[in-house]
Design a binder for these strands. Structure first.
Lengths: 244, 244
DNA sequence: AAACTATTGATTGCATACAATCCGTCAAGT
DNA sequence: ACTTGACGGATTGTATGCAATCAATAGTTT
């Protein structure tokens, strides 16, 4: 973060993207807050052009919504939005788990098992290692998707996992939930190792849907208190469906 | 098209996007062809800035691949890419069909039936109405996704349907295939109207996977001869997976 | 002749200046 | 008092100029 040296290999657009995305994921920008290009540009120490590029990308990934001439606002998530995302994840990742069970070789299973094992200590040192645990969890799911061998499903599922509200939700996990989650992972490794597609599918579906339950249980005030004043708690519904 | 009047409500970026996308979908740009910002800007009568924006969006939607400092090339589709897309579509849209069967009301079914019916004459006047048929087909699938009520799945499936190679593939349909496709649609309407989730799922899965079979049957020379010289048929594999 | 290096041309990436648009405010009219 | 209209500030959208980077070519060396 203190590395503002000029020898930055990444493009300015990439820096802007990471900067804004992290600020959203970490909750520094409140849901519903309007992001002006100028301010973001100043913060990331680039001009407005790469910031615009970053914002378009973030919009396509679901982090912000932007309307012509009105700019970008941090996207809020209604109950239904969250349910839709988890439902889609459950559909895709359970199918992927089945494919993984079919395709996995010995090395794949070995790797998965190692990853699952590595998560256990992270789960115990609960309160502060949320980020590390979340990262490890993402890597585990990513590995299963990779083994499944469908790039489209991999992209979609990973994008969903990266949406900010997921990371926040891990903070709400009770130790009991974490234990069940770890158990799920072990079961997944076993099922995939045994080549039992149906079992892998079912476990993955349950794994994700139960996570959805926990998250939704945290209630509508899932907005994390960020490092800044939180300019007036926004109404729970920023984008209402136009009834269509 | 002749409307280059200055009273164009759309933004320049939107015009650039449509311009480039249409040129790709229609095959005017060959697979593997390199697209330079300057040329595209001139063609769409805008500056390079909105063209860049359009290219990023097209990349996120899978029409082009772009690498830093190297620009954009029209994306090619390997056998596996196509299989992945159809597999994912089958997974999502079959699930959506099931949801639609659960959620549809009388008006929804009415609308679907009308759309299915309207496609029949388009199918008969086969050779030239490919575009109209393709549009109607897209609308039919889109309506089912809308009824299903999961925005994420809707977005994903529609994006996949819009990928160029699909449109091209319709040109390859034999009348026999079209008849089966129409029959599938009628069956879908019936199943959804009856609230039979399993049936709707199964029919949709078969509908999409059989379309995949037909498409793949057209072989690797699916690259349509465009209106321009086709600068040397590119090798079938432009983007090879880095083996990971 | 082959391989490696330097240079040139073209293209992308970025910054900045300018134009178009939107939103809030205030004034005037009904 | 309420609506309507216009003005002003701020923000987004677009164009253009310049710097950074890459690819290809020519030239040099082994």
């Amino acid at each position: 973060m203190a590395d503002d040296s000029k020898t930055d290999r990444r493009t300015a657009a990439e820096r802007a993207y990471v900067s804004v995305r992290d600020s959203i994921s970490s909750g520094r920008f409140a849901v519903g807050e309007r992001l002006t290009e100028g301010a973001l540009a100043e913060e990331a120490k680039v001009s407005r052009t790469p910031v615009r590029e970053a914002l378009r990308r973030l919009a396509s990934e679901g982090f912000v919504t932007l309307s012509p001439h009105a700019g970008a606002i941090v996207k809020g998530w209604s109950e239904k939005d969250v349910r839709d995302v988890f439902e889609t994840r459950a559909l895709i990742e359970s199918h992927a788990a089945g494919l993984a069970a079919r395709h996995a070789n010995a090395a794949d299973v070995q790797r998965l098992a190692a990853m699952a094992e590595r998560m256990e200590p992270l789960a115990r040192s609960s309160p502060r290692e949320v980020m590390a645990y979340s990262e490890a969890n993402r890597a585990f799911h990513a590995e299963i998707l990779r083994i499944a061998g469908n790039l489209r499903m991999e992209e979609i599922a990973l994008n969903f996992m990266d949406l900010g509200f997921l990371v926040r939700s891990y903070a709400q996990f009770e130790t009991e939930d974490v234990q069940r989650s770890l158990s799920d992972h072990r079961q997944l490794v076993t099922a995939i190792g045994a080549g039992d597609e149906r079992c892998a599918e079912a476990v993955m579906r349950g794994h994700i849907l139960s996570a959805a339950l926990i998250f939704r249980g945290t209630g509508p005030e899932a907005a994390p208190r960020g490092t800044r004043p939180l300019p007036a708690a926004p109404t729970p519904e920023h984008e209402k469906e136009p009834s269509r």
